[in-house]
Amino acid sequence: MAFIWPAAVPNAGNEIPTMLIKEKMNQILKDMLDYEAGIDAEAKPPLLTFDPGETGI
């Protein structure tokens, strides 16, 4: 299978795509807890809090 080289996404050519790591992290949190960072100043960052009622994880 041909490999999809993510650096082929806009990039001047020699940056290390560290953003991809953070994107993945945010994607997981969006999936898992429906949270997006930096939108609501009143909200608590999801890993600084918990919900006892959570099931499935």
Binding site: T18, I21, K22, E23, N26, G38, P45, L48
Partner: peptide, 17 residues
């Protein structure tokens, strides 16, 4: 190191680039 950076930003990173 990159895992440290990544995991410490989990749930905080706003992808400002």
């Amino acid at each position: 190191f990159h895992m440290i950076h990544g995991l410490h930003l989990a749930g905080r990173c706003t992808e400002c680039g």
